[in-house]
Amino acid sequence: MEIPSARPGEALPTNNPEPPAQSFPDNDPAPGRIEVESLYKSYETESGFREVIKDLSLSVTEGQVTAIMGPSGCGKSTLINLLAGYEKPNGGKISIDQKPVTGAGPDRLVVFQETALFPWLTTFENVAYGPKIRRELKGEKLDSVIMSLLRTVGLEDFRDKYPSQLSGGMQRRAELVRALVNRPKVMLLDEPFRGLDAMTRSLMRDYYLDLFERHKGTQVFVTSELDEGLLIADRLAIVTNRPGRIKKILDVALPRPRDESLRGSPEYLSLKAEALELLHEEALKSFKAGAVNSADFVGAYAAMG
């Protein structure tokens, strides 16, 4: 599918002429490296004891996008919550640049599934929230940094709107910028484009690729769309059926900058075939285990292939 071309005068995000140096006055921080060693997480639920993640080890390499895919309920969101420090693992280690993760912090920022923009703040105030409370940037400098980021994602005219006045796609873009302005060592994205229609979603992916290629931070990107995963990722980690561990990591050595045209290339197609096979295997296991929505899942992967 080709991206519908913009109206005259409306630049697509990927050929935005603004140089990256303008986005941040200082250099981008050194991207962080996350090491996860034999992670274990279980919950005591009403229906009994449930192991969500078991023996999951993963290196999230610095400056790259690591996409995470797996059957629904395989613990992808739990992994993000553990990496972010919102929840504590029952076993194993998580460290960022050799320092153990003990809680939430601005070095690892999360972009949530549905938007978590504060509804009582305007777009600008939302983006300014992090730098302001940490007193890192203020006044005109803060203003110019935020405005140039908002321009990159086409939201400069929406700076004084509240989230409820933005469309779904705009909210996600504002949220990407809210995380990025803090220059985190790692960005954790938990299906950030979920719930958007296909067209908005592909546009969001282009905005995301554009931002990533400018700022080159470490990214952990959970997705349930294989094409989305392949187009954005440097490495695609496939998680097994619950209890989740890494089944395989595929290196997505496709050239950057990327766009939709890659989808026809032989490298892309062979990677896709390999990933599909792995995912389908896990989906079937999840189906046999009787997961509620796994039937849809198996169907969905059959349709993708």
Binding site: P4, D157, L196
Partner: peptide
């Protein structure tokens, strides 16, 4: 401006503003 993201052509999403 519509609330519904599906009603928006992606490449021109910032157009409703104009």
């Amino acid at each position: 401006m519509t609330d519904n993201p599906s009603g928006i052509i992606p490449a021109v999403e910032s157009l409703p503003l104009a």
